[in-house]
């Protein structure tokens, strides 16, 4: 029992450290990639090739003034950033980074937890994470924040549907709700071959849930001047920021797990394959951010309710039919 606890604790520390380091550098990677795409250098003054930039940003945010507006709802105002960072970090525990390996005669699994309903918990926590945005916007006593929170709620309600429908397709193919079993089921062919439509739906609705740029309704810079986090400063803002990037990383992990075969891949060890695929998905998210213009709010809603959701339902039916026939 003690051994189990110690192993789990060590695994937790390693997973948290590595993933948080990756997430820290995602902020730099986003700025660098955006810079390269726009034929600029990106940050390159702090440290060699700008490698110390995330830490400089962190120190800057820590030293800023902590400001709470007078008409903010104080308890909720304080809790919102915590929700927004905590949910993605809990999701880290459910991601299967690799298959089990043997160290010193003990078999150690490269994931922290493997509940039978892993994908349901992930979807639930993803939605819960949006409460950070919604509550933060509503409690800050600012009309821009309020509108941002409202839009965040609307987006999460609508895009969660098509996302879940896309996941149902994968679950039907794998025959299990557990993430590890889903990866095991993809040992031969990846799910992206079996369910390409579900893959595209998942990517689009995932981008909307992440509040990435083509769907960044809650923090529309042009019209809401940063949206739900206008009134946040200092470490609270940093938490929102960090939560968003952690969510981006988790999204990459999820796409890898559900559609790109998780840790399966030739030659290299499983964990390396997992991180390569995850970072490729993250790169795609940043790449499309630099490419596509923002959609209008009603277009975002129209895309979901009139296109993605019917398509997802039809996709489920077709998948079920094909599976029943074969």
């Amino acid at each position: 029992m003690l051994e189990l606890m110690v192993i789990t604790m060590i695994k937790t520390v390693i997973v948290l450290t590595v993933c948080m380091l990756v997430v820290t550098y995602l902020t730099l990677a986003e700025r660098k990639i955006l810079g390269f795409i726009q034929l600029r250098h990106g940050p390159n003054r702090v440290g060699y090739w700008g490698l110390l930039q995330p830490f400089a940003d962190g120190i800057k945010l820590l030293l800023k003034e902590e400001f709470v507006p007078l008409n903010a709802q104080r308890p909720i105002f304080y809790i919102a950033p915590i929700i927004s960072i905590a949910c993605p970090m809990v999701m880290l525990a459910l991601i299967p980074f690799g298959d089990s390996i043997t160290i010193l005669g003990r078999e150690i699994t490269l994931y922290l937890a493997n509940p039978d309903v892993g994908i349901l918990i992930i979807l639930g926590l993803g939605t819960l994470g949006a409460y950070g945005c919604v509550l933060g916007g509503w409690s800050s006593g600012n009309k821009y924040g309020y509108t941002g929170g409202l839009r965040g709620a609307a987006i999460i309600i609508s895009y969660e549907l098509s996302m879940a429908f896309a996941v149902i397709c994968v679950v039907m193919i794998a025959g299990s709700l557990s993430l590890v079993d889903i990866v095991h089921a993809q040992a031969g062919l990846w799910n992206i071959v079996y369910a390409p439509v579900a893959f595209i739906i998942f990517i689009i609705s995932g981008l909307a849930e992440l509040n990435r740029t083509p769907f960044d309704m809650p923090e529309a810079e042009a019209e809401l001047c940063c949206g739900y986090n206008v009134e946040y400063s200092s470490m609270k803002f940093a938490l929102f920021f960090f939560g968003e990037y952690t969510h981006l990383f988790i999204f990459g992990c999820l796409v890898t797990t559900l559609f790109l075969g998780g840790w399966h891949g030739p030659f290299l060890p499983g964990v390396v394959w997992f991180f390569i695929k995850t970072l490729l998905v993250v790169f795609f998210c940043i790449w499309q951010r630099a490419t596509f213009p923002r959609l209008r709010y009603d277009q975002v809603m129209k895309l979901e309710w009139k296109f993605l959701m019917p398509l997802a339902i039809v996709n489920i039916l077709v998948t079920a039919l094909v599976m029943a026939v074969y």
Binding site: I33, R40, H41, W287
Partner: peptide, 21 residues
């Protein structure tokens, strides 16, 4: 057009930057 846009930005990503430091 969406795919064409992605192709264009990826070309930019690979090409040399124009900034003079």
């Amino acid at each position: 057009p969406l795919l064409k846009g992605l192709q264009y930005t990826f070309g930019n990503f690979l090409s040399k930057h124009k900034t003079i430091q």
